[in-house]
Write a protein that binds this DNA or RNA. Sequence first.
DNA 1: ATTTAATTAGTAAAGATTACTATCTAGGAA
DNA 2: TTCCTAGATAGTAATCTTTACTAATTAAAT
Lengths: 151, 151
Amino acid sequence: MPPFPDESSHHLKRLTDGLKRAGVKLTHQRLEVCRELAGVTDHPDVEAVFHGVRARVPTISLDTVYRALALLADLGLIGRVGALQGRMRFDPNMTPHHHFVCARCGAMHDFTSAAVDQIPIPDDAHAFGHVHAMQVEIRGLCRRCQFGQES
Amino acid sequence: MPPFPDESSHHLKRLTDGLKRAGVKLTHQRLEVCRELAGVTDHPDVEAVFHGVRARVPTISLDTVYRALALLADLGLIGRVGALQGRMRFDPNMTPHHHFVCARCGAMHDFTSAAVDQIPIPDDAHAFGHVHAMQVEIRGLCRRCQFGQES
DNA sequence: ATTTAATTAGTAAAGATTACTATCTAGGAA
DNA sequence: TTCCTAGATAGTAATCTTTACTAATTAAAT
Ligand SMILES: [Mn+2]
Ligand SMILES: [Mn+2]
Ligand SMILES: [Zn+2]
Ligand SMILES: [Zn+2]
């Protein structure tokens, strides 16, 4: 056991504790999905999580991954991130942060901004309903796409 | 001819001018898709545009609507808005604004905020690539969903 | 160990988007 | 105006993504 738990096991504990607290069964499959999420720093789609978990649990089904991710998202343990092209993606990072999204390839990068976080929620927004969170999305072209790479 | 062109025809002119400027054919189908977009203030998905246009052009195909919307979005004449559930949606409103999104039903409302628009783009973001625009997304529960309406 | 309700694997179904091709047409040239 | 043709469409098929179904399995409480 390391003197300090590493970042990954911190995240894993947060996820598994959340499942226990929700009173759902902590199955082998759900545990491995959590382990996968705890070990990534990007915004994986279902397919990516499925591939990662299947390396350790070869018999897991795609549907189970869909359900595990939906459960974690519904419990607020991971975030959903709106996809501009194709598949739904998830965000294991629940600390307040914002996104840079490439309009061409869909690459998504995290960044933080105290300046943004200090802005009060506009009054207009409260009129629409109960505000849960405010997030900035910056659209642009990532470095790879900026230079004519066809990949 | 009215003394001042109404809002809708302003939008329509912007869209059709954009298509002409791009050098593509201004077909009857594309014109009607533009007309539909110009007459709407929400964030329709492909199905919604298809239904609206089909009332006037009964033989238009769904694929044509998909292609027309993709073309308009690629030309920067309308916006794409990331869907949290299911279908891709489009935003005919290209003036700078922000969104309130209901996490439950997906309802999306526009709002403007001078305070938000004045924030400089964080330096971290520039490191990821060329920034095109910055937009705020507020997640929450709309009024309908706040009170236990099952619809 | 027994029990049971929740969960899963495997597959089917549904829903959304893209691809294909014969036909048609917008827009330029004659 | 008429003719021509590259580009666009209609109708449909194919692909991709997500959800639904059911018999078998299993976490976890007793
Ligand atoms: Mn993130
Ligand atoms: Mn909008
Ligand atoms: Zn990119
Ligand atoms: Zn709602």
